[in-house]
């Protein structure tokens, strides 16, 4: 009996496989375009959804099948891979500094890449919030609670994690915007905050594991989308999200890699791929993955799911753009090195 059944199932598989092969061989003759999107770690699920939506859109518009392959890793590491020869058609990274590097280090994109798409080439944004243990036992409500003695703060090293640089700048901006705030005061505040950091992981996911799995620390500084994902995946009974009074608009930008799209002849579809992120459907997908949409109508529709933060500042307004922020704070002998006494 069982043997017979197994044989029947085996036969079904055989026909299924054969059908699949025939279909695949047939489709090989239709026009197919391949794109490679080099992105950073937490966008994996977002782009899995988005790629499907874009493929359907592009098939309807041009009749071509487009397959988008994804490569994920730390933002800086991804930029370095592209500089060293990973032929990505588009990059979607955690901060403008990493795409600037493509222009400065290897001339893969023009210097004005960020002006080519609306909103500084950032189709969606996020911000920095606090993830605390359920019930908020340490009573953490704002940035000044993080420097109190006995509070352990988990955040990755801004030297190795692009995402963590936003955390650092958000804390700095908070101190700066307090009454009588200045750079010296902000540096002292941030220094005090990092005194409360027991572990500096090298990347954002590492910090999440330290906080969630190892049970270390009272508060995790996280991107809003990561915090919501953590709560969604790990249960709302374990963590709460706390919105501080001020935070920074985290802008993960996107760009076509000019040198490689021209080599591959994929410029048109690659540009469409990024433009479609700004469409209603693209914005909806971003919002579903807890990124804040730029489109006001979509934003209004999803407003309830995001933390309400009274004051949101940008890196351009407070720090004069990424190049300057990087040089002042994260380069060798910048403020981050200084607060660790070097």
């Amino acid at each position: 009996m069982i043997d017979d059944k197994r044989r029947r199932i085996g036969r079904e598989y055989f026909w299924f496989a054969l059908a699949l092969i025939v279909i695949l061989m047939g489709s090989a003759h239709a026009a197919t375009v391949k794109l490679l999107n080099a992105s950073y770690d937490p966008t994996r699920e977002l782009y899995e959804d988005y790629n499907k939506a874009f493929a359907a859109y592009w098939l309807g518009k041009s009749g071509d099948t487009v397959t988008v392959n994804q490569s994920h890793g730390g933002s800086g590491k991804q930029a370095r891979s592209v500089i060293d020869g990973l032929e990505a058609d588009v990059v979607t990274l955690a901060l403008a500094y990493d795409i600037d590097a493509l222009a400065v280090q290897a001339k893969l994109v023009p210097d004005n890449w960020q002006a080519r798409l609306p909103n500084n080439s950032t189709p969606y944004t996020s911000t920095i919030v606090f993830l605390v243990r359920k019930g908020n036992p340490k009573g953490i409500h704002d940035w000044n609670d993080l420097v109190k003695p006995g509070v352990a703060v988990i955040t990755p090293s801004p030297k190795t994690s692009g995402g963590a640089r936003w955390n650092y700048l958000a804390a700095w901006a908070y101190a700066l915007k307090q009454p009588g705030g200045n750079d010296a005061g902000a540096e002292a505040f941030v220094k005090k905050l990092y005194k409360n950091v027991p572990v500096l992981d090298s990347g954002a996911r590492g910090s999440t594991v330290t906080f969630v799995e190892r049970g270390i620390g009272d508060v995790l500084l996280a991107w809003e989308n990561e915090a919501f994902l953590a709560v969604k995946e790990l249960g709302a009974d374990k963590f709460d999200i706390v919105a501080p009074s001020l935070s920074i608009v985290a802008e993960p930008p996107v760009s076509v890699v000019d040198k490689y799209v021209d080599q591959h002849g994929t410029r048109k579809v690659a540009e469409e791929y990024l433009k479609y992120l700004y469409s209603t459907q693209g914005q909806e997908i971003a919002a579903k993955h807890f990124y804040r949409p730029r489109d006001p109508t979509v934003a209004a529709r999803y407003a309830k799911q995001f933390a309400s933060i009274p004051q949101l500042v940008t890196v351009d307004a407070v720090f004069g753009g990424w190049t300057k922020a990087q040089a002042t704070h994260f380069a060798d002998r910048g403020t981050f090195d200084r607060i660790y006494g070097q």
């Binding site: 730390g74 800086g76 590491k77 370095r80 500089i83 590097a101 400065v104 280090q105 090293s157 030297k159 190795t160 692009g162 090298s202 990087q326 994260f330 380069a331 060798d332």
Partner: peptide, 10 residues
Amino acid sequence: LLIVTKLEQY
């Protein structure tokens, strides 16, 4: 790790 850190800053 310091080597990786330096690379991260290009």
